[in-house]
Simulated scan of single mutants.
Amino acid sequence: MMNIPCLYAIVRFCPFLETEEFANAGIIMIAPEHGFFAYKLITRRHARVTNFFEQLDGAVFKTAMQNLKEEFERAGAMLRQHGIDRKYQLSDTEFAKSVFAEIVRPREAVIKFSKIRGVLADDPAAKLEDLYGYYVERDFVTKEYREAVLERTMRRWIFDAGMANKFGRIEIGNEEYHATFPFVEQNGTELVQVVKPLNLAQDQPSKILDHGGQWLFRIQTLQRKRLLPTRVLFAVEGPDGQGPRQQAYADIVGNLRDSGATVHSYSEKEQIMRFVQDRGTVGSS
């Protein structure tokens, strides 16, 4: 093991200085004694970030990332001139550390950085990928964790609409079969409507089909046993881009709608809240 000492910082997108909320958007790393300087920024799936800041124009994030990339490229060129890549005999590790510290210094801007952190790595490039996966892609997040986040956000929407006392987490069914929904409205003992945030953004088509199919089975079984109200809404978060994952997502959404459930993208907050507040309209979209 080489145990190369590396310094890194997390790139944070913070568009609203008043609230100090941020989303991790990249990693920048340097190993000056090893001649390594690199970074990785979000270049796709940026909807996850822009959807978090609902009032923000998505172009702001794209522009900020492009400007940051150019800044990093200029810093990399400067470091190479001073021998960071060991092509010259002028390598100055202290200079490299000072440049890195200047890049990630605290600033009043939409881009901020975490404190500089240290880590030992056999392969700095591989470690950069690992850190990006953990802090930006959130590899540790399970579908259950993500759905808990979606539920918390939706609970805030319902609270802000003055309807918090109308919905509860309830187990629907009987001794033979039952399932728990996070948002259930009742009128006495009668079920009025159920709402379920659903994460279908898994990294493999089979996982999307498995998780979506599980909920499809649940509602079909409850419907068959006449245990479910007619008003059922799934607020679904899906994958970005095209390809097999998108096809798997489309299949599940189509099957849910065929079952009689209403399905909206989780990003469609207005449509979701309109469904929740308007009990007179039943159907799918």
Rank of each mutant, 00 (worst) to 15 (best):
L79E: 03
K166A: 12
E268T: 11
L17M: 10
D92T: 03
F95W: 04
I4E: 02
E268V: 05
N255P: 06
L17G: 04
G168H: 11
G283K: 11
R74L: 13
V194Y: 02
R224K: 13
E144I: 10
L17R: 12
E176D: 14
W157D: 00
L191H: 05
I116W: 00
R12K: 15
E108T: 12
M78S: 12
D251C: 09
F100T: 00
P229D: 03
R74I: 11
A235F: 04
S265I: 07
V282P: 00
A235S: 12
L68F: 10
E94P: 00
L233I: 02
Y8M: 00
T221N: 08
D258V: 12
Y145D: 14
R218I: 14
R224D: 10
T180S: 09
V49I: 14
K166V: 06
E137R: 15
L79F: 04
V263A: 07
T221F: 02
N3L: 11
L191D: 03
F37N: 01
A9M: 02
E33C: 04
I172L: 09
R218V: 15
P229C: 05
I172K: 09
L227Q: 15
K62S: 15
I208V: 11
A126Y: 11
R257Y: 07
Y39K: 00
D85K: 05
Q223F: 08
S267E: 14
Q277P: 02
A75F: 13
A250M: 11
P197M: 04
Q277D: 09
L222S: 07
R155P: 02
D210S: 12
F181M: 02
F52G: 05
K112Y: 06
I103N: 04
Q242T: 14
D210Q: 14
A179H: 14
G76A: 11
F183K: 01
D240R: 10
E70S: 11
I172S: 03
Y266F: 15
Q242D: 14
S284E: 10
S267C: 09
E18G: 06
M154I: 01
D240L: 06
Y132V: 00
E108Y: 11
E176C: 07
Q223V: 05
I170S: 01
M163S: 05
F13I: 05
Q277V: 10
I84C: 00
E171M: 11
V253R: 06
F22Q: 08
V110D: 08
F61H: 04
A235L: 06
E94D: 09
P106M: 09
L120F: 13
Q55Y: 13
T189S: 13
Y134I: 12
R117Y: 04
E108C: 10
Q204P: 01
D210Y: 13
E54P: 09
V110K: 07
E54F: 15
D139F: 15
D85V: 06
D123Y: 08
N67C: 08
E268F: 13
P197K: 03
D57N: 15
V141P: 00
Y145L: 12
L227N: 07
G162I: 04
K166L: 14
E185A: 08
Q242R: 14
F16C: 10
A250S: 14
F72N: 03
R146N: 09
P197S: 04
A179W: 10
L17E: 11
T230G: 07
M78R: 14
Y88F: 15
E185R: 13
R45W: 08
Q220P: 00
S284A: 11
L209V: 07
T153R: 13
L68N: 01
